[in-house]
């Protein structure tokens, strides 16, 4: 696969069976889920509250699924571009919610770091990519001096570093996976893993959830939901992962199950990170970017912790991402 093909040629989109089947199943689920829910509600198995809840979720996914699936099928350029836009919108939400937006210099450093991350990912320049997070953290600590206002220095620096960690560190690693020849199945494996994790936690929590997981942070999460999601997500991720990573160092039962556990745990932790932020700020949703569904951060929270952890886990065992692809395609000396 040449760099140009990988970047913007959708012709090879369905070459890998995992991409094909994930797309088919996703489209199928989007069509079937509301119909099944309506049918179950009609014969009285599902109550009106659950029915409304599920329908609202389906409506959200009808917008989100094409927005996520589209760039992945089109090519890695679109994945990196879309992730950059997502990170900028998430930064807008996070900074407005925490008040960081009033600190324009710190905010500007975060925005520039997001652009730099997208550039390094598009370029496939890994050493530049790894330099962005530590350098921009140091720059945040430096520019936070400039207003000559020691009051609140630690707060604005810490908020800047938090934004960098979640958006440059978290979403950045998601974008960098797009440099792999198998970026479509790998990204879908990760995305489907963290999103199914949410669904599994919701469903098993409703069925078996009694003990609250951490009621002060997130009152609706139960231990039953967390364990149910851990078991189911690990199984599904390991099964799909086997087809994605066939013939590599990742393709052993222990490595695949480990990846599944990592996806499930880090997905749930990402969710709780956002819940903690919202509780601390005493707000309900991070924003109104998605009408009726809260902010984008509320939707993509489970990816924030999972992306860097899974990236380095797979990178260590497989090993690497895009090592057979041309590097520094824009800036090659």
């Amino acid at each position: 696969m040449t760099a140009a093909e990988r970047l913007w040629d959708p012709g090879s989109a369905f070459d890998h069976p995992v991409t094909l089947w994930t797309t088919v199943v996703l489209i199928g689920l989007l069509l079937v889920a509301p119909i099944v829910t309506l049918a179950l509600a009609r014969i009285g198995i599902v109550g009106p509250e659950t029915r409304a809840d599920v329908l609202v979720r389906c409506k959200g996914w009808a917008i989100l699924a094409p927005a996520i699936l589209g760039p992945i099928l089109l090519g890695s350029f679109w994945v990196i571009g879309a992730t950059c836009v997502l990170a900028l919108l998430c930064h807008n939400e996070l900074s407005r919610a925490t008040g960081l937006f009033r600190e324009r210099l710190v905010s500007l450093v975060v925005v520039l770091a997001i652009f730099a991350t997208a550039l390094s990912a598009a370029d496939h320049w890994y050493s530049f990519f790894t330099a962005i997070w530590p350098v921009s953290c140091a720059v945040v600590a430096a520019v936070a001096i400039l207003p000559d206002r020691p009051q609140g220095y630690v707060q604005r620096t810490a908020l800047g570093v938090l934004a960098l960690s979640l958006l440059v560190g978290g979403l950045g690693h998601f974008a960098y996976i797009a440099n792999d020849a198998l970026f479509r199945p790998i990204l879908l494996w990760l995305l489907v893993g963290v999103q199914l994790n949410d669904v599994f936690a919701y469903v098993t929590g409703r069925a078996f959830g009694r003990r609250k997981l951490c009621p002060a942070t997130s009152p609706n999460k139960t231990l039953g939901g967390a364990i149910g999601a851990l078991i189911l997500t690990t199984c599904v991720s390991a099964y799909v992962g086997h087809h994605v990573f066939e013939g590599t160092g990742m393709d052993t039962p222990a490595a695949l199950l480990g990846a599944g556990v990592l996806i499930s745990l880090s997905g749930q932790l990402g969710d709780l990170v956002l819940s903690s932020v919202k509780r601390d700020l005493d707000i309900k949703d991070m924003g109104t970017t998605l009408p009726g569904h809260g902010g984008l951060l509320d939707r993509f929270d489970s990816l924030l912790i999972a992306a860097p952890l899974v990236f380095h886990y797979v990178g260590y065992l497989r090993p690497g991402f895009g090592l057979d692809q041309p590097m520094r395609i824009l800036t090659a000396p």
Partner: peptide
């Protein structure tokens, strides 16, 4: 050290 004080945007939660 003064306690941290978060001041979310005053128009948070409003539509465009």
């Amino acid at each position: 050290m003064e306690p941290w004080e978060y001041r979310p945007a005053q128009d948070l939660g409003l539509s465009r």
